[in-house]
Design a binder for these strands. Structure first.
Lengths: 223, 223
DNA sequence: TAGATTGTTAATCGATTAACAATC
DNA sequence: TAGATTGTTAATCGATTAACAATC
């Protein structure tokens, strides 16, 4: 992977993990770390870590390793944590409310501006200080505030329309928590990132089923 | 990929997506589908789909394609959907409650047996018909009922201990929703599947930041 | 039968790992 | 300086794509 060449999704998916691990090291008071130590703690090879970082530039010092603070800072910068991203939540049901209350948006560089719903029981209220507006007023608010990301926790049947409206209103990304695969045209420039609980549980289901098989029919390693 | 050889994680991660897409096709009344049509609808190549399915056997008919019903059934079987898996939830806070109320465990072949928490305000109550016990009684219940998976929605600081107790009590998998990377020994045979919201949002953050850059400095395609 | 599409092997591509000179 | 560890290129490995005979 040459520097500045297009970064593969495999690398992109590891960046947040690096960031998380470095945060933990930082909290634990670790000042410097080598690629091999970091790799061991994350189940990666030293080579892979150096290769990954090489995509973005040289953040270490030969003979010394990486300074935890500054590497964390660099990766945070790459991830766009200091860009003042903003976000709105569509769907203030159980999951939407839980995320509004629990999730540390600001730790990830996002400011949560508002939530939208259609239920008259929640419209007009606040959830953890976040105002809930009626969905009818979505475009109105997005015309006034720059909103980078729309978080979708609407019912599956409402997901596509909600996504379309957000995309039309100019958001740059959709964070999709519905079990629906959003259909957003490639050339729209809107990025979709989905969190599919079902996919995750079914993958786990597969893995434990395999595990069981392996335990029943023990190791006939084909030599 | 030879048949019955170890299946790569890339393939495992696609299986639930196939299952989901086939379910949608089924609902739409589609009876048969070719690998190329399925591929187009999912953004994959026909070749990749055939190669993936080849890991598990021949589910299609030459000259015809795949019957949606039976392929869905086969993939469901591979994923272990009919194995009567069971699950308990640890942590009945906002997120835990939202999942208990919203998530269709049974659609994914899981029966939710109970939830556990330490808060006296929720211990002894029911959430959507699911009883909430005190964490102290975890081992007691797991000694009586076979529990395949423990879902972790406890606070980050409680995650490792909760995971350890579940593993010791014999669960086969941990479905981890905390932002903590569980440390479970490889040889324990316990599979960990994590849903890291932060990682997902940061990946999205990276992608929209790139998108912005691309729009500002338009296409100097190097010919 | 002719046409379509799979199952399966071979070729290509990309990601990971290895190696080592550069240098702190 | 000597030792350690990075940055970076080269080699290897694995996943994806292409090709095509088999066959419905």
């Amino acid at each position: 992977m040459k520097r500045n060449a297009k970064v593969s999704t495999a690398v992109i998916r590891r960046l947040p993990r690096y960031y998380r691990q470095l945060s933990e090291l930082q909290e634990a008071g670790v000042v410097r770390i080598s690629s091999s130590a970091l790799g061991k703690s994350m189940g990666l090879t030293a080579s892979q870590i150096r290769q990954d970082l090489f995509c973005f530039g040289g953040f270490g010092q030969q003979g010394y390793g990486y300074k935890v603070d500054s590497l964390k800072g660099e990766i945070g910068e790459i991830l766009g944590i200091n860009q003042g991203h903003t976000l709105v939540v569509l769907g203030a049901g159980n999951l939407g409310r839980a995320l509004i209350k629990n999730f540390k948006f600001s730790s990830n560089g996002f400011q949560l501006l508002a939530a939208f719903d259609v239920d008259p029981k929640v419209v007009g209220t606040q959830i953890a200080g976040v105002p809930v507006y009626h969905m009818d007023r979505l475009e109105e608010l997005l015309a006034v505030h720059r909103v980078d990301v729309g978080l979708l926790t609407v019912p599956m049947a409402a997901a596509q329309e909600a996504g379309d409206r957000l995309a039309a209103a100019g958001v740059k990304g959709l964070w999709n928590f519905t079990n629906y695969e959003l259909n957003i045209p490639q050339d729209s420039g809107v990025v979709v990132e989905s969190v599919h609980f079902s996919d995750s549980l079914l993958a786990l289901s597969y893995m434990i089923s395999q595990q069981e098989k392996a335990e029943k029919a023990p190791e006939e390693e084909p030599q």
